[in-house]
Amino acid sequence: MWRWLHPYAKPEATYRLVDKLLPWFAAFTVVSLAVGMIWGLAYAPADYQQGDSYRIIYIHVPSAIFSMAAYFAMAVMGAIALIWQIKTAEWAIPAIAPVGAAMTVVALLTGAIWGKPMWGTWWVWDARLTSELILLFLYVGVMALYYAFDDVRTGAKAASILAIVGVVNLPIIHYSVEWWNTLHQGATITKFERPSIATSMLWPLLVSLLGFKLLTISLVMMRFKNELLRHELHRPWAQKELSADKELSDGV
């Protein structure tokens, strides 16, 4: 086991660290998300072809990217949990999975909303949308497996193994879907893959990307804190933490 990592294998130390970092992440999330959204949705120039409807990329693209990134992070946590048998890494899986799945759903919904003015229909079998749909299935599988076992640790191990298998398959799935898409829908113009983007549109996109990244991390941290408390409920530190929270809310 890595020595330097060891202190954070202790749930209490992890909790303290996350607790300390979370407000900062939350604050930066609010700022960058607000800037990115307002800039992108209100001030960025309209597209000469798509008009204002393209603006949904400021939500669609970041959520699609971080839905994939969250799955990758989950698989990394799974590998750490399996190899070094670190329990806190096991608990990161139920913390990440629903957030990633939510990002996937956002990407699917915004894709559908974008599709309506573009193609006149809510759903087309576009490569990225199809990939996102399959990603959602993968998330559902991991979550279903995690909660299927009576023993939490067994569930976590099973979900870790599946997440790793999924991450190995993800590129294969991604490229097969893209290949399939060009094969069957060669005529459809793919609006999602833009070869180039004007700088005035790019900057707000980058800010939104940062915002979504921080949002994903903050949400995961919040869930992770809950997981830590849930699993350590009988330990004194968790009890103390909970009663402190209670006093705080009673005082307000």
């Binding site: 497996l145 299927a148 099973a158 398959n169 879907v177």
Partner: peptide, 27 residues
């Protein structure tokens, strides 16, 4: 193997595996 311990693993197995089968189906 993942669902060995589960009494009714059948539907869960499908849920886990079908997405992984997709590339094979396509090609």
């Amino acid at each position: 193997a993942l669902t060995l311990q589960l009494q009714r693993g059948g539907s869960l197995v499908s849920l886990i595996l079908l997405p992984l089968f997709i590339p094979l189906l396509i090609f």
